[in-house]
């Protein structure tokens, strides 16, 4: 699925960098009804994980109160060049990944 990842391409060792992620997902709450009264089943992303060269640096549990197309921003210390991997897991077996690379000088 489409995801937008914003990670600085270059950073100095020890810098605190901001990572911003946005992924497309309906985040259906499970509390809405159609016009004929039927409950629309819940379909949300329940978990987000970010790994930096294999080490988990940020994790989040999401609930229906997170807006559609979940946006998350967080920080990390730039330690070494490498890869940031992002994973979203949700209802009905939903799973999506993305990655970004960073050069640390």
């Amino acid at each position: 699925m489409a995801a937008l990842i914003n990670v600085p391409a270059k950073a100095k060792r020890g810098d605190i960098i901001e990572i911003r992620t946005l992924t497309s997902h309906i985040m259906e709450t499970g509390f809405r009804r159609t016009m004929d009264g039927a409950l629309v089943p819940r379909d949300i992303i329940t978990s987000f994980t970010c790994r930096y060269n294999g080490t988990e640096i940020f994790r989040a549990d999401l609930f229906p109160a997170i807006a559609a197309n979940p946006y998350l921003s967080f920080f990390t210390v730039a330690k070494e060049s490498g890869k940031l991997e992002f994973e979203w897991i949700g209802d009905n077996g939903y799973s999506s990944t993305a990655s970004a690379s960073i050069t640390v000088e």
Binding site: I66, A67, S73, V77
Partner: peptide, 12 residues
């Protein structure tokens, strides 16, 4: 290693 204790998101 988060460096800064700050998170942002959008909620309902």
């Amino acid at each position: 290693s988060s460096g800064r204790a700050q998170i942002s998101t959008r909620i309902r």
